[in-house]
Computed example of a mutant assay.
Amino acid sequence: MGYVKQEKHPLEYEYLQPEHLKGFDSYKYNCVDNSPLSVYVSHPFWNWLVVFYPRTWVPNVLTLVGWGFVMAGFFIEAYLDYSIDRNSDGSTNPIPDWFWFAAAACTFLGHTLDGTDGKQSRRIGASGPTGELFDHGLDSWSTVPFTITIFSIFGRGRFSISSVELLCVLISTQIVFFTTHWEKYNTGIMFLSWAYDVSQFGLVIVYLWTYIVGYQWFHFDVLGGIVNFAFTFEIGFYMCCLMSLIASAYNVHKAEKLKQPTILAGIRPAWPVVILFGSSIYWAVHSPTNVIDADPRFFFFCMGTVFSNITCRLIIAQMASTVCDIYNLTLGIYLSTIALSFYNPSNELPILRVSTLVITALHLHYGICVVRQLCRHFKIYAFDVSYLQNRSK
């Protein structure tokens, strides 16, 4: 994405070009959420709950706090089980049972706040593209904690899956999220995946069940001992991914009018994630020092942060009706990290960790600057709704 100019303040860097801002001016929210679970359970509950929210509660704060609960569960679990091996078969020091209750609470609260932030926004008259971008941008970063935390139940080894398989599960989750926004880039309508609500309720149920019966309950074989239960869990993720891809392809095929002029223009946003996914799998499989097993947390978080940055740029493009970027600095650094790891294998792990910190800092800078730029453009505040009172006067 082009760099327009550098303001005096480092957090006022203008990543968005004039055509983006012009597109945001005319943007209209267009979303379809017809999952039976959403229609008959989630939305009725959220509609009932949001009535009790004080009107001073800022929607973006709800979004940030909800995302904070998700990340809190991830980082607490990382502190307790950094190498994702405490729940391995025969472990004498498993993850404490209380954590799974906390994980269920964090997931439920995160999902609830993520579902009510938009309703609160419409309730107080603060709806706008800035809030939607802020919401979906943070959601794109949540694919890593959702995936890694749930598979920590299995640990490693006999009753688990390999780190490379776990990477593939993460990629399948990211494909579902990315495809939703890629579809909107082409059709102008966001059809929310049925898998999202199902996955959130599923996570809460699995965490609570783990808290009640213990992690050992999940250590068993199926199909006559051919595979373990973790493998069938993995297959479930792939099936959800496949069904989401089929649904998106159907929606694009049935669209009355596509926003993109050609097929090549329509698939343009997919190239960065194809490169990201392909290079990640190659690195994980052929790593000189098996870095994905040496530090799976940094590996997954680094890859997930690049994915979030790519997806944020797609979200901006589909909201602003502009051409999506196919290159960004975080992806360039990530690919350079892989190349440098093969060139200097003795320092592969330090290279990964330093690159992760750099990529995370760049992603945070991008997100903060974009939100601040949009707030300046629309003359609003991200975490304060006092401007609504001034408008009413």
Rank of each mutant, 00 (worst) to 15 (best):
D97S: 15
Y211E: 01
C312L: 13
F233P: 06
I175R: 01
L62Q: 02
T360W: 11
Y238K: 03
M239W: 12
S392I: 10
G236P: 03
V385G: 04
A247C: 10
N60A: 07
A102S: 14
A230M: 11
G367I: 04
T63C: 10
S346D: 15
D325H: 11
A320S: 15
S199N: 13
G131F: 05
I175E: 05
P44H: 09
L138V: 03
F101L: 14
S35M: 05
V213K: 12
S38L: 04
A294Q: 06
Q17S: 14
E19S: 15
V176K: 01
D139P: 07
V222L: 15
Y215F: 01
R158P: 00
F134H: 02
T116L: 11
C106Y: 13
A72S: 04
H253W: 14
P296D: 03
G224E: 07
N186M: 09
G131H: 08
P261V: 13
T210C: 10
A255M: 00
P18G: 05
N30E: 14
M71G: 00
G155P: 08
H20T: 11
A284S: 09
E12F: 13
I315R: 02
D81Q: 05
I326G: 06
S91T: 14
V371K: 09
S248R: 01
K184D: 04
P18F: 08
V70D: 04
V285T: 02
I351G: 05
Y79E: 15
P18L: 11
S140L: 01
D139Y: 01
L138T: 05
G73F: 11
P272R: 06
Y211L: 02
G304V: 03
S287W: 01
A103H: 07
V39T: 15
L167R: 03
L62R: 00
Y15E: 07
R123Y: 02
F74Q: 03
T116Q: 02
V204A: 07
F191I: 05
G304E: 09
C375P: 06
G155K: 08
N186P: 08
F301H: 13
L11M: 03
L113R: 04
K259W: 08
L11T: 01
G367D: 09
I148N: 09
C240T: 10
G128A: 10
I226V: 12
N344E: 12
T116A: 13
P145W: 03
N251R: 14
D114N: 00
F237V: 10
L138K: 00
I326S: 03
I368G: 02
D117T: 04
I292T: 00
G90I: 01
Q200C: 02
H181A: 07
I275D: 04
N347P: 06
D384N: 14
A105P: 00
P261L: 12
F52M: 12
A102G: 12
K28E: 14
S142M: 08
S341E: 00
A361R: 02
T289H: 01
G202N: 06
I275T: 06
H181L: 07
